[in-house]
Amino acid sequence: MARILITGGTGLVGKRLTQLLIDKNHEVLILSRNPKNENEFKWDIVKNYIDEKAFKNIDFIIHLAGAGIADERWTKKRKQVIIDSRVKTANLLFEKVNELKLELKGFISASGIGYYGAITSKTIFKETDKSGSDFLAEVCQKWEAAAHQFSKINIPITILRTGIVLAAKGGALEKMKTPAISPLGSGKQYIPWIHIDDLCQMYIQSIEANLIGIYNAVAPEHQTSITFSKTLAKSIKRPYLGIGVPAFMLKILFGELAVILLEGSRISTKKIEKNGYSFRFETLKKALNNL
């Protein structure tokens, strides 16, 4: 049994992960701006404050905190919020862990497949591939650099580069369930996705099986916007329209943010599978049937 401190514990992944960790008899503590429950402790990035009681006897920190990438248009101000909510929070955790001389068994951080850049290419990206050069790549580089600080104080680091998380309630899938389903733009871009339970199990494996290092956290099956839309339409019994939503319309609606809808490459899962992870939902059909 481990004692685990989670940031972003009230978000989509955080809630499900907390539930699954408790089911496995782990103890979960949560950092929150507005703590309500007994296992929640206050933190305030602006004031550089974390309630030190949150760190008592903890074995692991799981860092999931971060403002939603697709929640608002990417204004200059919003871009800074996206970066700061990931990086400043990790920096604060590092300062406190260092100050309290905590000997953690691991620091486990979320990151995104945006690390490789929002592009459609023939490459199937592996963890060793270099990062992209756009805004999302910059976010992920800074996010991961903040996590890597923990190696300076001999704490093992795990980073999970995550794709689109599919869950029964909330998240991307809810937004996709439109009255008619159609691909976006050319429809040829790939959509790297993962079932929320597979993602949570990867975090659990990081704790229970000492999964250290950087891993792509997406399902092994590659789907384009066209094939994804067809599978989704069939699964939820909605009509499929073969005409893609035009790229220019998405750019008008979402501004620069539209790039995450219009571009996407394949992502390799070989490393995590070689390290003992076996997917519960390796195909989109199986994932959607479950959800």
Rank of each mutant, 00 (worst) to 15 (best):
G163W: 07
A146V: 12
I50K: 11
A65C: 12
L160F: 13
K77G: 01
N57E: 14
A258Y: 04
Q19V: 02
L5P: 09
K177D: 03
I159M: 04
E221M: 10
I22K: 14
S278Y: 07
I164Q: 04
K42C: 07
V46P: 02
L291A: 10
P239T: 07
S182Q: 13
I272Y: 07
K76V: 11
T10A: 12
L184W: 08
G242V: 01
K169C: 02
F281Q: 11
A67Q: 10
P35W: 13
L104H: 10
V259H: 00
P183C: 09
L104G: 11
A110R: 01
T128S: 14
S186W: 06
I164P: 01
K88V: 04
G276E: 13
Q19T: 14
L232T: 00
A70Q: 03
I207P: 07
I243F: 02
A168W: 00
L262D: 04
I226L: 06
F125T: 04
D197R: 05
K15I: 10
E38Y: 08
D84L: 04
Y277N: 09
F94Q: 04
V97M: 07
F279H: 08
S186M: 04
T231C: 15
K270Y: 03
I83V: 14
V218Y: 00
A137N: 04
D71H: 01
P35C: 11
N210V: 01
S206R: 03
Y116T: 05
K15E: 14
K152E: 14
K126L: 06
N48T: 09
A258F: 04
K24E: 14
W143I: 02
G11E: 06
E273H: 00
N48W: 11
I236P: 12
E27V: 13
P192K: 05
V87P: 01
I243S: 03
N39H: 13
K251Q: 14
D84E: 15
P192G: 06
I214D: 06
K286P: 01
I45P: 02
Q201D: 15
K122G: 15
K237V: 02
Y215E: 10
P246F: 00
S151G: 01
G14S: 11
I252M: 13
P192Y: 05
E138W: 01
T224N: 11
Y115G: 01
P183N: 06
K36A: 10
M202Q: 14
L5C: 13
N98V: 00
V46Q: 14
V13F: 09
L12D: 05
I164L: 14
K237M: 08
K105Q: 13
T128Q: 13
K175H: 12
T7V: 06
D129N: 15
S85M: 03
I272E: 08
Y115L: 05
P35Y: 11
L92G: 05
E38H: 12
N37P: 03
S186G: 06
L12W: 05
G244T: 00
D84S: 15
E138K: 00
E40Q: 15
K36P: 00
E95A: 10
K237Q: 13
A147Q: 06
Q19L: 11
G112Q: 02
L21M: 14
T158M: 10
A287N: 06
L253R: 06
A110F: 03
G185C: 05
